[in-house]
Amino acid sequence: MEKSSDVKPGGEDSKARFQTYLIGGTSSLLSTLPTIVVFPIYKTIFRQQIHNSLVQEAVGQLRKEGLVKLYRGVAPPLVMRTLNGTLLFGFQDTLLCQLSLRFQDVIPAAALPALAGFGAGMVEAVVFTPFERVQNILQNSLNDRQLPTLSSVLSQLRAQRPALGYYRAFLPITARNALGSSLYFGLKGPTRAFVAEQGLPPLASSFVSGTLTSMAISLALYPLSVLVANMQAQVGGEPKGVAACWRALWRARQQNVALLYRGGSLVILRSCITWGITTAVYDLQVKK
């Protein structure tokens, strides 16, 4: 039997776990203002993903629609940002703790954060796929007349089975989120340590590491985001599987990687702002 002095009290452990969820949510909440600021950029990217248009053409579409419609669909990402940070950071920390206790002699310690991030990303996909589905429908101008309000979108999705309604494109979202979270938690620590060695203060090191890590992930997984946007933007029609949708997208992009990555440069700017701030705020609170 272990001595009581060697066992961490359950209350303290639970409090530490809850604090991680709280810090993750707070970090993402503080990045909601940049989310509002860069939402027009996000919407521009979305239009490029859907219509394969140039930046000037996408901006022209949004300008023609007016300021009111510019922020149509902003509610889901605002809610997602706060809840996403709460779940992602908190659940990753919970998984990391469990993996460290059970598999510390089997799995290298350096790989544990990435493995825990992979699991957190899968849970994230289950929770947030419906949010992303609603957001993509609202952002598609082709749905404005048929589905003018949030309530009309929700009613339409409820009438369909989950695979075609709320959980359309669940598989590519799971792949994107699981891989992205795994890379983020696996790389941000080593990247922060490397940047700190260059003489930057801790807060700046965290910001730069979050920016560089999320930038690389966004670009690597961008084709999955394009696929998700195209699968989720439409409501109704002939149901197609992931493979069929990917073939149709690849043909629509003329089998050209450059066209597939149209809008990718703006992803860099969005990642620099949102995940740089989120990482810096999270690391700052954790170190207190």
Rank of each mutant, 00 (worst) to 15 (best):
G90I: 01
Q139D: 06
L200I: 08
S27H: 08
Q98T: 04
T274L: 14
G180K: 02
L33V: 12
Y167K: 03
R262H: 02
L259S: 09
S214C: 06
A116D: 01
S14G: 14
N84S: 13
Q285L: 15
S5H: 11
P34C: 10
K287W: 01
G25R: 04
V37W: 05
V267G: 04
D93R: 08
D13G: 01
Y282K: 06
S214I: 01
I217E: 00
L249Y: 05
F91W: 02
S53D: 11
R133C: 06
I50V: 15
V267Y: 03
W275C: 03
S182N: 06
T278Q: 10
S182F: 04
V38C: 12
A178Q: 06
R192M: 10
P113S: 12
G241D: 15
V127F: 09
D144M: 04
T82I: 14
E2A: 14
D283S: 08
E238W: 03
G237S: 10
F170H: 03
V226K: 09
P9C: 08
V281L: 09
G210R: 04
L30E: 03
L87A: 08
P223A: 06
Q139V: 04
P130L: 12
L83V: 07
D105N: 14
K287E: 12
P34F: 08
T279H: 08
A243M: 15
W275A: 00
L147S: 01
S4V: 07
D283P: 01
Y282N: 12
P130F: 05
L154S: 04
Y71P: 00
S181V: 09
V208S: 03
L221T: 10
P201A: 15
D283F: 07
S209A: 15
Q19N: 11
L147G: 02
L179Y: 02
G276I: 00
Y42V: 10
T174Q: 08
V134S: 07
T211R: 06
Q135A: 10
Q198G: 13
T86D: 06
V242Y: 03
I268C: 10
E132P: 00
G165M: 08
T274A: 03
L138M: 15
C272N: 08
K69N: 11
V195M: 10
S205R: 05
P172T: 08
G236L: 12
T279Q: 14
L221F: 12
K69C: 01
L266A: 13
V7D: 03
L269C: 10
A248D: 15
N84V: 00
T26R: 11
L171G: 01
V286T: 11
V55Q: 09
I273A: 13
P76D: 14
I217K: 01
C245A: 14
L29G: 09
G236P: 00
L269E: 09
D6T: 01
E65H: 06
Q92D: 02
K69M: 03
E2V: 07
M80I: 07
Q156D: 11
A16F: 01
Q156G: 14
V55D: 11
G165I: 07
F118G: 00
L183K: 00
Y21S: 04
K64C: 06
N84E: 07
K188W: 07
G24E: 13
L157N: 00
D144F: 09
A163W: 12
K240C: 05
V226F: 05
P239T: 12
G60P: 00
K3V: 02
V7G: 08
R145Y: 09
A258E: 07
A120R: 02
A220Y: 02
R168C: 09
F91P: 00
G24A: 14
Q146S: 09
G24T: 10
Q146H: 11
I277Q: 07
